[in-house]
């Protein structure tokens, strides 16, 4: 079990920045409530994953260097987005292979902790559910499940919440079909995948689905909205704040 730090850096991700900033704020609030000082370096932009996965590594490296710079230090870097966490933890090593920054990349990689992993394995957080009865499913991203191995953590957090009923959708571990540029380059295959994902979630008759990844949420919510289905996703940080009485300061 890892030791509880006094301070962490938060890497918010570009999607949270522009689409889901409340998820970032809730992550910060939750960490602060647990007595952790959260530093948010204002120079952060994007982990570089979009270009890296598209094969444009020079461009990805250019952007990733900015994060290497602004996330320096010894404190853990908490990332409320599993795919960005996986990029920084597992793929920076490949991206900066044979580059002058190889060592810095490895140093940062070792400090990356996904948000739910931090709550469960580092903070050993205890949650008191204060919300009404609710039925939810979890969609863990492929990065959360197969690269960061944190699909268990998000569910263990929900299991602490007494009034939250967790149901499991069909083909739960399967990709939602987002895949970055895949959604554009193979739009029809992507559409077929997300249609199956939304159908599986809708069959669960849940109030909400909870996720660690905003890329999947943008994809799944986009499909749900276009089908005019009322179901939407909620980021785990927002859901936990909501269920446990919010930030006492605010």
């Amino acid at each position: 079990m890892r030791e509880k730090p006094t301070q962490v850096l938060l890497f918010g991700s570009c999607l949270i920045d522009v689409l889901y900033p409340q998820a970032g704020m809730d992550a910060i609030a939750l960490l602060e409530r647990e007595g952790i000082e959260v530093v948010f370096p204002q120079a952060q932009t994007c982990c570089g994953q979009p270009a890296f996965n598209a094969g444009y590594r020079d461009e990805a490296r250019k952007v990733a260097r900015v994060q290497l710079d602004c996330l320096q230090g010894d404190a853990p870097v908490v990332v409320p987005s599993a795919s960005c966490a996986a990029m920084m933890k597992h793929h920076y090593v490949e991206l900066f292979r044979d580059q002058p920054e190889a060592e810095a990349a490895a140093q940062l990689a070792a400090r990356i902790v996904e948000f739910t992993e931090f709550l469960v394995d580092v903070l050993r957080i205890r949650l008191q559910d204060q919300g009404p009865d609710i039925r939810v499913a979890v969609h863990s991203s492929c990065s959360a499940r197969r690269e960061m191995n944190v699909a268990v953590q998000i569910e263990s957090l929900l299991e602490q919440l007494a009034q939250v009923e967790l149901v499991h959708q069909d083909h739960k571990a399967e990709c939602c079909g987002f895949g970055g540029t895949f959604a554009v380059k193979q739009a029809e295959i992507s559409a077929a995948m997300v249609a199956d994902k939304t159908a599986a979630l809708l069959r669960c008759e849940i109030d909400r689905y909870i996720t660690q990844d905003c890329g999947c949420m943008m994809n799944i919510d986009g499909a749900l909205a276009s089908q005019q289905a009322p179901l939407r996703g909620t980021h785990i940080a927002t859901f936990l704040m909501e269920r446990t009485g919010g930030n006492e300061d605010s």
Partner: peptide, 11 residues
């Protein structure tokens, strides 16, 4: 190469 979400189910 575009026909993959890099979901790692294969890996």
């Amino acid at each position: 190469l575009s026909a993959s979400t890099l979901c790692n189910a294969c890996t």
